Amino acid sequence: MKWIYKYDDKFNYIPGEEIEIEEGEDILKGHTDVRPQDGLYKGKYNEEKRAWYESATLEYIDHFQVKPLPTSDMDLLKQQNADLLEKLAESEKRAKEQSKTTSELVMLLTEKGVM
């Protein structure tokens, strides 16, 4: 048994019209035993090359691409909150570093008798 795939008089693939025939049985007119590859939007058969190719325009294909959803107010607030928490953590780190530097300077000034 083998599958054959149907195309119309313009060689456009007709999905869902596949049929199974016995090995050695003649392939029906308007059919081929060459399986169309996955991912074709508008498959077209080339009899001479015994191959399928994409005949859909980029505009047609783009029509089926998933468009990203607009960012919701909640998602926007979550992102802003995350950004603010990151900035706060950086500020706290800098404050600790400045405090340490100030302490070291006071110790040095004390050791030198300036203070």
Rank of each mutant, 00 (worst) to 15 (best):
M1A: 09
K2D: 04
Y5C: 03
D8R: 03
D9N: 06
K10N: 05
Y13T: 01
P15C: 07
E18D: 10
I19P: 01
E20S: 12
I21E: 03
E23H: 10
E25S: 12
E25A: 14
E25L: 08
D26F: 06
I27D: 03
K29P: 00
T32Q: 06
T32R: 05
V34P: 00
P36M: 01
Q37V: 08
Q37T: 07
G39K: 04
G39P: 01
L40C: 02
L40A: 04
K42P: 00
K44V: 04
Y45S: 01
Y45L: 00
W52K: 00
S55E: 08
T57A: 06
T57E: 06
E59W: 08
I61N: 05
I61L: 09
V66M: 04
P70W: 09
T71C: 14
D73H: 09
D73V: 13
D75I: 07
D75M: 11
L77P: 04
L77M: 15
K78Y: 11
K78P: 01
N81L: 14
A82L: 14
D83L: 15
L84E: 12
K87G: 03
L88V: 10
A89R: 13
A89P: 02
K93F: 05
A95V: 13
K96G: 11
S99D: 13
K100W: 08
T102S: 14
E104H: 09
E104D: 13
E104A: 13
T110D: 08
T110P: 00
K112A: 09
G113V: 05
G113I: 07
